[in-house]
């Protein structure tokens, strides 16, 4: 069964005294449960808009998004978390209270909340930094706190918008391992946007290649290479080369 399915998604942005800008045109793809899907494409082909539509932050002008069989935007939502390009931590909250932020939307008793925060921080290896403030943490650690915050709500679907593009290469590949490990362990379906083809090949089971003006699907590529995928091996490098040719 597919965790997330998009069917005929189109979006126009209104411009003052001009024809509306056609951003997305008839996008359709799906992600099987527990799999990782990457959306790649040149900048300006509507990747982030598409992710925001899946997240329910903006409505599509045409088409439907279903998350876990339920159409998105309704109240009966499947737990879904979004990780942004920036860590978006609340500077006045400690790491633990930042992780707990997403749990404060509904009603949850304190003991359960504490347990989830502890679990999530442990999962990203930051158990000892629960009381540290964001300005006391390194970029990689802040990114982990953001990941823990996304996981604390026990999401079925995790959306990531170029989540590690601001980290240095070493920290970045550490975060990749982390995401792969956690996604497998927690059976989370991951959809992420990136402009980095190599990142897409290393992480994803399926890659949606978008082309711009208007943003539409150029090709959907299945990657079934064994994990862990080392970008230096021949098969991975070959897949990266093929994908680059599509862009």
């Amino acid at each position: 069964m597919s965790a997330v399915a998009l069917d005929g998604i189109s979006k126009w942005f209104g411009r003052k005294a001009d024809v509306p800008l056609h951003v997305l045109d008839d996008i359709r793809f799906d992600v099987p449960d527990g799999r990782i899907l990457a959306i790649v494409g040149a900048s300006g082909c509507g990747k982030s808009t598409l992710l925001n539509i899946i997240a329910g932050l903006i409505p599509p002008d045409a088409g439907t998004v279903t998350v876990g069989g339920v159409s998105a935007g309704t109240d009966a939502v499947v737990p879904l978390s979004v990780m942004f390009q920036e860590d978006r931590l609340l500077p006045w909250r400690s790491a633990a209270r930042n992780v707990g932020f997403g749990l404060e939307a509904g009603q949850m008793d304190a003991a359960e909340k504490d347990r989830r925060i502890r679990d999530a921080l442990g999962l990203v290896g930051l158990g000892e930094f629960a009381s540290a403030y964001p300005h006391e943490l390194s970029g990689g650690m802040r990114s982990r706190v953001a990941l823990a915050r996304s996981l604390a709500t026990r999401p079925k679907v995790l959306l990531m918008d170029e989540p590690f593009s601001k980290l240095d290469p070493g920290t970045r590949s550490q975060m990749h391992d982390e995401v792969l490990r956690i996604a497998a362990a927690q059976a989370v379906t991951v959809i992420f946007v990136t402009h980095d083809v190599e990142e897409a090949v290393v992480l994803a089971d399926r890659i949606v290649v978008l082309q711009p003006r208007p943003g539409s699907v150029r090709e959907i590529v299945e990657i079934d290479l064994p994990r862990p995928r080392d970008p230096l091996t021949l098969e991975v490098a070959e897949a990266v080369r093929k994908l680059r040719a599509l862009l």
């Binding site: 932050l57 978390s81 920036e86 978006r88 932020f101 939307a105």
Partner: peptide
């Protein structure tokens, strides 16, 4: 950005 984050968690306006 923080308000958008809160909205992804379906947080109400008063919260």
């Amino acid at each position: 950005g923080l308000v958008e984050l809160a909205r992804t968690f379906r947080m109400s306006r008063s919260r």
